[in-house]
């Protein structure tokens, strides 16, 4: 049990250390799925929103939040789901975008496609499929280095 109640800003920082279950190089905070953190009496209330309706990671995310906070001494946690406003890739943090690219996943681009190959930086790119290895990704190929890569698609 913690001696003092952690501040909300502290909780946000902790959530920035909880990795996304599918793409562990970015945190839940980077992903933009955490919409609100607040104390309601002695209960820590966290509101999350799913990325994709059918994404199996959503229930894991709830579990991971509970266990990360329990590790830090906060046991009374309520995680609530909120659908609206619907999650958008605009909520990905700049840190998250940079980490995705370093990991080999092209971050969502303005034009609805990747700006450059995450491996070699070439802009000669070709879409293989609008759907990829997880609901949030599309499959692309670089015509420069000929490597296929995942693209985190805009929604």
């Amino acid at each position: 049990m913690v001696a003092t109640i952690p501040r909300v800003a502290q909780v946000w920082d902790w959530l920035d250390e909880v990795p996304d279950p599918e793409i562990p190089v970015i945190s839940l905070r980077d992903l933009g799925v955490i919409r609100d953190v607040r104390w309601e009496g002695d209960i820590l209330s966290i509101t999350i929103t799913p990325t994709y309706s059918g994404c199996p990671a959503t229930s894991l995310i709830t579990l991971d939040i509970h266990s990360a906070l329990a590790d830090r001494g906060v046991d009374k946690v309520r995680v609530m789901q909120q659908l609206s406003p619907a999650w958008t890739t605009d909520w990905l943090s700049d840190k998250g975008r940079a980490r995705l690219e370093r990991y080999g996943i092209a971050p969502p681009g303005q034009a609805g496609g990747p700006d450059r190959c995450p491996h070699c930086g070439s802009d000669k790119l070709e879409r293989i499929s609008q759907f990829g290895s997880t609901p949030c990704k599309a499959a692309w190929r670089c015509m420069g280095c000929l490597e296929p890569f995942d693209y985190f698609k805009c929604i």
Binding site: S53, G54, C55, F131, G132, A139
Partner: peptide, 20 residues
């Protein structure tokens, strides 16, 4: 393979909608 993945993703979206 790409079509297999695309169809599975489409199915997943639809089952996600169903749950809601």
């Amino acid at each position: 393979l790409e079509e297999d993945i695309a169809l599975a993703n489409t199915a997943l979206d639809l089952i996600g909608h169903t749950r809601m």
